[in-house]
């Protein structure tokens, strides 16, 4: 079950810590799921679609930092917030350097916990939105014919219809037709928007 605020996946070997986090996050409007070990999560058949992981750094079996490494290897981009005791801060810092989103020391300040979880989810969702838009845009660009793509590139380079016609040895009238098709397929409102979209695609593929 997924509500607006997002699903937090808690992985901690201490039942009391898990349960207290579950109730606290529930009271703050988040959905939760929990696992008592990294191995349990790794072995689970259908993993819930998670917006943020709360990961205990020290656990029997596969520990938090190891699980994080596995997630990164599998290409996961779901944010990971480590929860640590005071003695584990160097470990947590190392994890941040490897790409973890954040870490919190036990015991938590509830406001801080909720705020950090909220902002990790927000950031994640923005990234996902950007990814979706980009994928969509890429699909649209891929629907262009080779000739339309030539026209687009010259327009993006700042050429006028006439310049494009000269460069491609076609009539300005034909350029106009191609250009209208390009604008339609890409769904750009103006040449300025078209240029911006083309830049985004170029940047994301470089």
């Amino acid at each position: 079950m997924k509500s607006g605020k997002g699903l937090v996946c808690i992985i901690d070997d201490d039942e009391a810590v898990r349960e207290s986090l579950r109730i606290l996050l529930f009271s703050a409007g988040f959905d939760t799921c929990s696992f008592e070990s990294a191995d349990d999560w790794l072995e689970s058949e259908d993993k819930p679609s998670t917006d943020v992981f709360l990961l205990d750094i020290r656990m029997p079996g596969t520990d938090g930092t190891e699980l994080h490494r596995i997630m990164l290897e599998q290409g996961s981009r779901v944010p990971v917030i480590f929860i640590t005791g005071h003695g584990d801060i160097p470990l947590a810092v190392a994890a941040i350097q490897r790409g973890a989103t954040d870490f919190l020391t036990k015991p938590f300040e509830d406001g801080e916990l909720i705020e950090r979880i909220g902002s990790a989810i927000e950031q994640f969702r923005q990234e996902q939105q950007r990814d979706r838009e980009l994928a969509d845009l890429r699909r649209r660009f891929e629907s262009l014919t080779p000739r339309e793509r030539d026209v687009l590139e010259l327009i993006v380079d700042g050429k006028s219809n006439k310049g494009v016609a000269t460069a491609l040895s076609i009539s300005p009238r034909t350029v106009e037709i191609h250009r209208a098709r390009v604008m339609e397929k890409i769904a750009a409102e103006s040449v300025a928007e078209l240029v911006r979209m083309a830049e985004n695609i170029r940047m994301s593929s470089s």
Partner: peptide, 22 residues
């Protein structure tokens, strides 16, 4: 000992915070 005591304290803090919200 610090770890052993910190765990229940963490749970107590989170439980109470949740209670205050509920």
């Amino acid at each position: 000992m610090a770890h052993e005591i910190n765990q229940p304290l963490t749970a107590i803090a989170a439980f109470s915070d949740a209670g205050a919200r509920l």
